[in-house]
Write a protein that binds this DNA or RNA. Structure first.
Lengths: 107, 107
DNA sequence: CGACTATATGTCATATGCGACATCCAGCCA
DNA sequence: TGGCTGGATGTCGCATATGACATATAGTCG
C-alpha cells in the first residue's frame, strides 16, 4: 500500500491480510477492500503461472529482483506493490489481456 | 517505473513517453512496452471517468492526494505508479471489473 | 543421517514514488 | 482589463517499496 498509512492499513497489517476472501469485516472502505482483492487476485495468479514455468529464483532473475521478493509477492505480503505484481506477471509471459481478466474476474 | 532504472526506461523518459500508441520503436522489451501500455490505458480511462464526475482537486481530496499528482496520473507522467492509478480509478467509483477490462481491452 | 533444492521470513540501506507547494497557462466572464 | 477556475509542470523532503542478504523450514534423494 501507499499513501498515508491509514488506520485501516494498520488494521489489515495486524491481521496479516493474507487471507483468501479479504475483509470488509473490519471497517475497510470498499475502495480499500477492492484494492486488496486486486492484489490478492494477482498474487494467486502469479503463483499459478510461475509454478508452471519456473522457480521463484528464475523469475527473480528475469525481473532483476530477488527470490525473497517473489516469495513475498506470491504470499500476498503487504509490502509488495501492484506494480511489481504486474511486472512479475508479464515476466511469466502473461499478456495485458490475461492480467486484465485476472483483475476483472477475481479482483 | 520501479527497479533498476533500466536503459530502456531512460530511453522512454527521454521521449517523454506520453504518446498514444507507445513504442517498441526504440528497443523496448515486450514486457516494458506492455507495462507502459497498461499504465497509459489506465491514465486515459481515469481521465475519462474523472471528467464525468469531478475536478482533479476533488478527486485528489477523496484520495488524500494532491491535484498535481492527479494531473500527472492523467497525463501519463512516468513518476506515477500503477498503484496510484488503480486507487484513483477506485476513487472514481470504478469496480475491479471495469479496471480489469480497461487493462484487458486497451492495455 | 547429510546434502541439496524450493520457498518463506525478517532486516537493512537505498532508490523512488509520494503529497505538498509554487507557478504557469488557458478559458471564461464581468 | 482583472479575477477566477481547472489543469499542467517542476521541485523538494519524506515515506516506503525495493533488492540484497541471512536464515529458517520443508521436501527429496543418496
Amino acid at each position: 500500500m501507499i499513501m498515508k498509512k491509514t488506520k485501516s492499513e494498520r488494521r489489515v497489517k495486524a491481521l496479516g491480510w493474507k487471507d483468501g476472501t479479504v475483509a470488509e469485516f473490519l471497517g475497510l472502505t470498499p475502495e480499500e477492500s477492492a484494492l486488496i482483492e486486486i492484489k490478492l487476485a494477482l498474487s494467486r495468479k502469479l503463483r499459478e503461472r510461475r509454478q508452471q514455468r519456473m522457480t521463484q529464483a528464475q523469475l527473480a532473475k528475469k525481473l532483476q529482483s530477488s527470490q525473497s521478493r517473489i516469495a513475498k509477492a506470491e504470499t500476498g505480503d503487504g509490502s509488495v506493490s501492484i506494480e511489481l505484481l504486474v511486472r512479475a506477471m508479464l515476466a511469466t509471459g502473461a499478456t495485458p489481456k490475461e492480467i486484465g481478466r485476472t483483475i476483472a474476474e477475481n479482483g
